[in-house]
Design a binder for these strands. Structure first.
Lengths: 198, 198
DNA sequence: CCGGCGAGCGGAGGAAACCTCCGCTCACCA
DNA sequence: TGGTGAGCGGAGGTTTCCTCCGCTCGCCGG
């Protein structure tokens, strides 16, 4: 379960450091799922049996911690995108957007944070959003090439709208079907039978 | 400029109370516009030349203050909806959704707060959202009756999506045209020329 | 014009969370 | 097995939240 995905270059982490890192990550996952991504960092450190200073040593800010927690789900979303690349182009794209929304719903506040990534590119969460965007771009291009999706839609807009839907859905937990309806609405559009072509 | 919209029943407010109320409202408007709706309440009180206790006396929580600030814009949005009720049904609806988004953009954080209203109906902001929703429902019904908008769209979903778009737009201030594009996307849908009918 | 009464004022203060800083410890290497 | 610096941890300064309660002064009746 514990990922221990850290330390790309240089020598391996010291044993105690790695243990603390993993504990923090685990507690953060729990806390974010339970109380949303604005859970108390002091609380996370406390539950991990670690000083607050240690938390900040490993994760200089909240986004860094969120990014680390998000990494593992990222892998599964990317894998999903590769599977869906073999499916029907349009349905595949929509399925994938749905998967993103479902995932974002697991951590209250994540959708919002991901959206703000478009503004603050230095955020640690960009590391999560960029690969996601690229995977989305491939699915979108394929769907557009097949003619089943409008050619004038950009992946940036589509991702932003998807995150927006995720956010709307998390505000209405009493209506779990909302996300699906909004996604369908986005797919088919508002226009009715007698609308002028556009 | 100062609205002094308070005190429905009973005797009029004491002169000093009304003065403080109006000052607080004015400073809140400024602060919310400048720093977003999570501006410091202590700061607002300080700028209004009033103790923090006085702020909490008039506005028991942040949502109450937001609601009061939002009231005046509410009036203009409702007026707009009546004008648009004479315009082309579909275009009128879309124009109005655009107006909501524009307005929400004036106070960072407002869109989010309005969305959360669907969850917490005791919030003071419900007083703002309910009339808005009703005005929207009228425009939507008219558009649906004319056949230019799908019949299976509910006003609840549409408002939630509109707020979500407003929120997405405020995350990307470097791209002021984003809101318009997302709204258009919602209107026309994702589907391209070769998609199956749905 | 004036006195008293209570609505309204205001800020002290406790709680929570943020983040920084720095002296100590102990994991690791030679 | 000893030295050393990477890593630990928590004290503490800051900010914001919100409550509570003694004082003040706006208003009304005389």
């Amino acid at each position: 379960m514990a990922m221990s995905t850290a330390q790309t270059p240089g020598r391996p982490m010291r044993a105690d450091a790695r243990r603390n890192y993993d504990r923090l990550l685990g507690e953060a996952r729990t806390a974010f799922a339970e109380h949303g991504t604005d859970a108390s960092l002091e609380d996370i450190a406390r539950r991990a049996g670690v000083g607050i200073g240690t938390l900040y040593r490993h994760f200089p800010n909240r986004h860094a911690l969120m990014s680390a927690v998000f990494q593992e789900a990222l892998a599964s979303l990317l894998a999903r995108s590769h599977e869906l690349a073999k499916a029907d182009p349009c349905a595949g794209l929509v399925d994938w957007l749905g998967a993103i929304i479902t995932h974002a719903g697991e951590y209250r506040g994540l959708a919002q944070a991901l959206m703000s990534t478009s503004r603050d590119e230095t955020s640690a969460l960009s590391d999560c959003n960029v690969p996601l965007r690229e995977a989305g771009a491939r699915l979108l291009a394929r769907a557009q090439a097949s003619g089943t999706v409008r050619a004038d839609v950009s992946i940036g807009d589509l991702m932003q709208l998807t995150n927006a839907i995720a956010l709307a859905a998390e505000q209405a937990p009493e209506d779990p079907a909302l996300a699906g309806r909004l996604l369908t609405l986005t797919l088919r559009g508002l226009k009715g039978p007698r609308a002028a072509a556009g």
